[in-house]
Nucleic acid binder design. Structure first.
Length: 571
RNA sequence: GCACCCGUAGCUCAGUGGAUAGAGCAAUGGUCUCCGGAACCAUGUGCGUAGGUUCGAUUCCUACCGGGUGCACCA
């Protein structure tokens, strides 16, 4: 049970004594706040809302409540005008928190909210035959961290890389390859060459309008099983996926499925038939659509004039398939905010089909990665490649290591962990919905609110344990006076917050909560480190302080793991 | 034009309706024979504008202004 809950229960029983019945413990818990300044207490209860029920001024209410609350857990219950401020018995809480964190280890903060139920989550989903740009990083790392957070809460995430391996663009690519392509060039540098062809196609299409039609024609052939088209498509896909896997390895992201859009090719007829049966399909301007007029939305396009399917058709088929295959508790789509309308439409169509599980589907949108304040465009060749960014970050980290810690054992491995960590963390610390303006300078900063800062703090804490000769597994004894300053108490209250942060991160599908938390914990710990001599002369004091350090290490490591970062012990 | 998202310090961003709105970067100055200086400490005339709801609004609602994104055969 959390301390806040205990406080809420105490307040609730005091309220009952005052004759207030309709305030549940849960409601009180919801009203509890953290005071703006630690000097004002650890938990605060504002009494404004009680004024009506009790017909008294809030300051009087807090005064009366204080008289009914007593518990060894509280050092003091202070009346501050309309607020009731609780000061914890620091020694007891400190001991308890350290005990809990160390005994639970990486399981600290776990819940069983998900009860083992499946949650397919759509993430990364790059387009085949296009380079993996900084833009794709967002979906990949936000999705991966969200999946980790789900699993922390007892869900079974299923990471699906819904590859963009189907659609008219492949018709265009086939046309471009047949016109200007060269087999050897593609084999040598597949993505680069395919991108060149893709760009050339769009340049040529400016003058030659028939190219677009040819592209559509070839995609139709592909859907109809034309041998030549299928062969080329398979080749493009294999080469591309192989390139992507290098990046995923570096990022430490793996998938349970790489079934992309093409996977649903043979499942399209069924969804179209179902829509037909349910009388939802109507013809409009030659295309087949589901009207969503009653929701003030444009119609959802199911089939093009030429009979080929569309993005929405494939997502509908995928939704049906996932429901049948996984019986999911939720289904998540970690896809950019530009596609809000698309997902709203797809979800509404499923609702109209009578599937009440559609309400468990969520689009997790995020802002765009911009360059110079503008959208990166693959077609215009204005992209920053993730591969280059990662390589540069790793290179820069290695230089820092050469300078600061030249005797480090495994420099290359650590450079990779820290360099990649910097890039992932930079993305995750931003609130999802905001756009991120790409800047090399910011990306390659390793000081302040960055991944390396947190990793550094962790490494430094680890080296304290070594220096202090800390032996894990022993009984946890906290001697009086060892952990009583503001600095250590601040660390303890941060550790206390971890489970709350994780719950909010789950509710909002928001890994940035965890990223922010981990920065704050690192900052708080670094203050403690700078002001308190941890490896002290006195053996018992040293032991006590090292226990706190060990607890911080556990939480930092687990926080970083959830975000998809490694926590090296030295760097 | 309609819909959605975002406007907080010079810059990048936090901020679950509550008590004096916070970090980082950049800048300047500093840090005990100091456990890792990728650190710590010190320096801050800022919530786009105008209304509304509320005991109380940066937070909720409405309008406007500014930026972004969508709006039928691309994904």
């Amino acid at each position: 049970m959390s301390y806040k809950q205990l406080v809420a229960e105490k307040i609730n029983s005091a309220l009952t004594q005052l004759g207030v019945e309709d305030f549940s413990t849960e409601k009180v818990l919801d009203m509890l706040e953290t005071p703006p300044n630690p000097k004002m207490g650890d938990v605060a209860f504002p009494c404004f809302q009680l004024a009506k029920a009790l017909r008294k001024a809030p300051p009087m209410i807090s005064q009366e409540l204080a008289g009914h609350i007593q518990d060894p857990l509280f050092k003091e219950v202070q009346v501050a005008g309309p607020y009731l401020n609780f000061f914890f018995n620091q020694h007891a809480v400190t001991h308890n928190v350290i005990q809990t964190v160390i005994s639970q280890g990486s399981a600290y903060g776990d819940t069983n909210i998900g009860q083992g139920r499946n949650v397919p989550i759509d993430l990364s989903s790059p387009n085949i035959a296009k380079p993996f740009s900084m833009g794709h990083l967002r979906s990949t790392v936000i999705g991966n961290a969200t999946a980790n957070i789900l699993s922390k809460h007892g869900y079974q995430p299923i990471r699906i890389n819904h590859l963009g391996d189907w659609g008219t663009q492949f018709g265009k690519l086939i046309v471009a390859y047949k016109k200007w392509g060269d087999e050897e060039a593609v084999k040598a540098e597949p993505i680069k060459e395919l991108l060149t062809l893709y760009i050339k196609f769009h340049e040529e299409a400016e003058h030659d309008k028939s190219l677009e039609d040819q592209g559509r024609e070839w995609f139709k052939k592909l859907e109809d099983g034309d041998e030549e088209a299928k062969h080329l498509w398979q080749w493009f896909r294999d080469e591309s996926l192989q390139e992507f896997m290098k990046i995923y390895d570096l990022l430490g992201v793996s998938f349970d499925s790489t079934a992309g859009e093409a996977f649903y090719n043979d499942k399209m007829d069924r969804i179209v038939d179902l829509l037909e049966q349910k009388g939802l399909l109507t013809e409009s301007e030659g295309a087949m659509v589901v009207s969503l007029e009653e929701y003030d939305m444009p119609p959802c396009l199911i089939k093009k004039r030429d009979g080929a399917t569309l993005y929405a058709t494939r997502d509908l088929a995928a939704a049906l398939y996932r429901h049948e295959e996984f019986d999911f508790a939720k289904a998540l789509y970690c896809v950019g905010g530009e596609q809000r309308l698309h997902f709203q439409q797809v979800f509404k169509v499923l609702e109209k089909m009578g599937y009440d599980w559609a309400k468990n589907m969520h689009h997790i949108p995020f802002g765009m990665m911009l360059k110079d304040g503008k959208k990166m465009s693959t077609r215009k060749g204005k992209v920053v490649l993730l591969e280059e960014v990662l390589a540069q970050a790793i290179h820069d980290v290695k230089q820092v290591i050469e300078e600061k810690n030249p005797t480090l054992a495994d420099k290359d491995a650590v450079s990779r962990q820290v360099g990649v960590g910097a890039v992932i963390f930079h993305d995750l610390k931003h609130f999802r919905l905001n756009d991120i303006n790409f800047s090399w300078e910011e990306m390659l900063t390793f000081e302040g609110e960055t991944g390396p800062y947190v990793q550094y703090t962790h490494a430094r804490a680890c080296s304290l344990l070594k220096r202090g000769g800390y032996v894990p597994g022993g009984e946890i004894n906290i001697v009086e006076g060892a952990l009583e300053g503001d600095e250590s108490w601040a660390v303890v209250t941060e550790l206390l917050r971890f489970p709350e942060v994780l719950e909010r991160a789950l509710e909002d599908f928001d890994p940035s909560q965890v990223a922010r938390y981990v920065i704050l914990l690192a900052q708080t710990f670094n203050k403690f480190y700078a002001h308190v001599r941890i490896v002290a002369e006195d053996e018992a004091v040293k032991e006590s302080r090292l226990h706190l350090v060990a607890a911080v290490i556990e939480v930092l490591k687990e926080g970083l793991r959830l975000l998809g970062l490694q926590a090296p012990e030295e760097m």
